[in-house]
Amino acid sequence: MPSYQTIKDWPEEDRPREKLLGKGAQALSDAELLAIILRNGSAAAGASALDHARLLLNRFGGLKGVDEASVGELSSVKGIGPAKIAGIKACLELARRIAGQKWQAGEPLRSSEDVYRHFRESLGREKRELFYVVLLNNKNRKIREVKISEGSLTASLVHPREVYNPVIRESAAAVIFVHNHPSGDPAPSAEDIDITRRLKEVGDVMGVRVLDHVVIGYERFFSFSDKGML
């Protein structure tokens, strides 16, 4: 039976930390990034930090599951003690706070990625379907965001009158529509496509530019503008 090896015993190019420093964090898998947070494995269990990371991801169904797991659930995994759990929870909370930093009034819109980053934490885990309109001035700078509806996206809930009332009040020159899919899959439904088309037609008549409709899922999004569907 081969002897237990720590990550330090591996070739340097295979070690997660060295790989991150040499190639950047984006080059690492979820398991490798998690292994860096865990720092070390368990000689008693014959498992490296990467082994523990893979075990956690498999046990809880990926990063989302690890994030949502309680301290008690994480501690039930062999080799995962208080220090490792604290490190995991702290890193995930920092990521959540960065993602949740507010898109302040007056800040410019640069891309659909900006919209996604702003709404990811508030809508990415939301169990209800919410629809927002983001109001922009003629320089594509944010005025404010307005929640229009809660519940399944239907023509009755997202009526052009309700959507464009705040646009008129704020004299907005452009808008971005944003809503979430509680399923986590941001692919637009037939209803999404139809509502977007109708809202775009009304915007054209009113002289209001519809810049995008961004659908938020879990850790991903769909942009009507990026896909050439506006």
Results as ranks from 00 to 15, higher is better:
D194G: 06
K227G: 01
P166T: 08
L55C: 09
H181T: 01
A99S: 09
D204S: 13
A173V: 00
K227A: 14
S171K: 10
D204A: 13
D185K: 06
L199H: 11
K142H: 08
M1P: 06
T196V: 10
Q26G: 02
W103P: 02
A25N: 02
L109V: 10
F222Q: 00
V163Q: 03
R169V: 11
L28S: 02
A190V: 13
G228M: 04
L21W: 08
V134S: 12
S48A: 05
L230T: 04
E32W: 05
A95Y: 04
E201I: 12
E129G: 05
L50Q: 12
I85S: 11
H118G: 06
L56N: 12
N137S: 11
I85H: 11
E170A: 15
D9P: 04
Y164P: 06
A155T: 11
E162D: 15
R198P: 02
H181G: 00
H179D: 10
A27D: 13
F221D: 03
D185Q: 02
E150V: 09
H159S: 15
E219V: 03
D204G: 02
A49K: 01
Y218M: 04
Q5H: 09
I80E: 09
K147Y: 00
Y218D: 13
I176S: 02
G100D: 14
E150L: 08
S112P: 03
A27T: 15
S29T: 15
R15G: 03
P182L: 07
D51P: 07
S70H: 08
E170V: 06
E68P: 01
